[in-house]
């Protein structure tokens, strides 16, 4: 009974600690140096990566990750680790998890839907998605913002 109680306490403590862990719910989450979306990018964290929450600052969580400390937008994290659905290619997926992938609104459902709706231009959408994909917009579009005095570069301006 004593042993059981000890197990209870240990498990309860570990569960309590688990509440401080959140999981990346986007394909690539940007780990930032400061609590600002225009801040320096430290790393891109893959889907389902666990991070330890150290604190909250506005719409950002201060987090500890394998890549070090930094900030992540609140909206990019979830308290629950996302499930693996069929054909999911993103994130930290172990082989065990991949074999137990479950059904959901996923690539598998889309594939079935495409067969039933062959006139929908998914090929165009795929091309559009490839052309517009940008996991790191604060770096890729920095010149665009600088030229337009936008984001981190806004310092007043002139009337045209």
């Amino acid at each position: 009974m004593k042993r059981l109680s000890l197990c209870c306490v240990c498990l309860l403590l570990s569960l309590t600690a688990a509440a401080e862990v959140r999981y990346v719910q986007v394909e690539k989450a940007r780990l930032l140096k400061r609590a600002s979306n225009f801040s320096t990018l430290l790393a891109l964290l893959p889907y389902r990566t666990p991070v330890e929450v150290l604190g909250k600052q506005g719409a950002f969580f201060s987090v500890q990750t394998r890549q070090g400390k930094g900030y992540l937008p609140e909206a990019s994290l979830n308290v629950v680790r996302p499930r693996i659905t069929s054909q999911s290619s993103a994130g930290e997926v172990t082989s065990d998890e991949a074999t137990t992938a479950t059904k959901g609104f996923s690539a598998q459902v889309e594939s079935e839907y495409r067969q039933k709706n062959p006139d929908l231009p998914y090929a165009v959408l795929d091309r559009l998605e490839t052309q517009t994909r940008c996991p790191n917009p604060q770096t890729v579009y920095a010149t665009f913002r600088k030229q337009g005095k936008l984001g981190e570069f806004q310092t007043g301006g002139e009337r045209p």
Partner: peptide
């Protein structure tokens, strides 16, 4: 407040 989407914005 939603700077990131599952596979980014398009």
């Amino acid at each position: 407040s939603r700077p990131e989407m599952y596979r980014g914005y398009h």
